[in-house]
Design a protein around this nucleic acid. Structure first.
Lengths: 221, 221
DNA sequence: CGTCACCCCTATCAGTTGATATATTTCGTG
DNA sequence: CACGAAATATATCAACTGATAGGGGTGACG
């Protein structure tokens, strides 16, 4: 379970890290059932049993990937999210300020979605897990998804000058974020519909503007 | 390929129909890769080779399911869709009329989403296929998805009093429909977030109202 | 130098899956 | 009833998957 080693980045740790990264890529691309342990091992440059040695089994690796993603996002998004959450909870947030927070969050999400494949790894992993609900689902739901929806819902409530906690706001938050799945889960389909090859510069702006208009509708302008 | 029999519903045809239905259920529930031919055969009450006898192989069955869905939807939605499409193409549609059509389409979609499991079969099948892009993908994309998006995009353009065909409207249509995936692809997740058990009466109204508000945002009220 | 824990590999297993060769049944038709 | 074609079942195959038993190499430490 705990793998504290005295010196950092021993050869063992780099092997473990390589497997973890290969697992992320494969799971994000193929899903838990679709990714084979041989595929992961090959991509990590190791042989099959090494995975079991470090992570127990395929499920263990999947959970470890989910945990890694949660910690990455905590490191990256914690300042943004905790500040917003704190302000929202204190009740010291005006409607327009809440709307600003929502804009910023949407910006960050569209940014994450339109990033290059390497950066989209975690996004793809998480969204795929929300559809499949594999071994890492519970971790991601509790550690990432549920709190994220909660934050957006609270901000929505403040922006609409209602008291938070209502189901309506949570459902709205869920649907708003789901609208972005057009360019994640079913991205190739959407790109084919639009005749786009990928989501570069000006097209990202288009998507961003559309997300803002959807938000407008939710907030009631 | 062609299986025209003179008399209707010969025992052979009912076997074929049972397999088709079992395939729909299994593919909708587990996806193309996840559903096993044995699972389908058992659910249809036949043995393995019968599937191959009627459909060639697993891929053939999957394509046949996709084809069946397309024809079902054509029969069911053709009056609605073709009337809307015709009106949209003739340019004889006012902005408010276009908005009415969009409302009606959203109603129908939310209705389809919140129906019981049996009725959601085709919806689940289609959406799963948009994510996985299995053997039946091309059929569903050309026969259902792409024209559907096109219709919504054209109506959106008219409702906004722009000329149709712009990428912006198509992207908006894609995102609007994707927002509904909150209660299809990732339905269990959303229900867990909301503390709901299922999407019954009043909750369906909530979702419907939210979809309308998202549409408001797209149209610009 | 010995040895012992740690790390990684080769080889192999049992279970599952899609497919099919072959046998049996069913049924219309003469 | 006879017979042949269509429809279904039995038995089996090769490929693949997750897992692991067992061996070898390496380095820290006495």
């Amino acid at each position: 379970m705990s793998r504290e080693t005295k010196s950092r980045l021993t050869p063992t740790e780099t092997t473990r890290a390589r497997i973890l990264e290969a697992g992320m890529r494969c799971f994000a691309r193929e899903g838990f059932a679709g990714a084979t342990t041989r595929m992961i091992a090959a991509e990590a440059g190791v042989t099959l049993p090494v995975i079991a040695y470090h992570f127990g089994n395929k499920e263990g690796l999947h959970r470890a990937c989910a945990q890694e993603i949660i910690e990455q996002h905590r490191r990256r998004l914690l300042p943004l999210v905790s500040a917003a959450h704190e302000a929202a909870n204190k009740g010291s947030l005006s409607a327009t300020e809440a709307r600003d927070w929502l804009d910023r969050i949407l910006d960050a999400l569209v940014e994450a979605i339109t990033a290059d494949a390497e950066q989209r790894l975690t996004t793809d992993f998480v969204l795929r897990e929300m559809s499949e609900q594999g071994p890492g689902y519970a971790l991601l739901f509790e550690g990432l998804w549920s709190p994220g929806i909660g934050l957006v819902a609270d901000l929505l409530a403040i922006a609409r000058q209602r008291r938070p906690g209502k189901e309506e706001e949570r459902a709205g938050a869920v649907m708003l974020l789901a609208s972005l799945s057009a360019f994640t889960t079913i991205e190739p389909v959407s790109l084919a519909v639009l005749g786009w090859e990928r989501l570069d510069g000006s097209r990202r702006d288009t998507v961003m503007a559309l997300a803002k208009r959807l938000l407008d509708g939710l907030v009631g302008r």
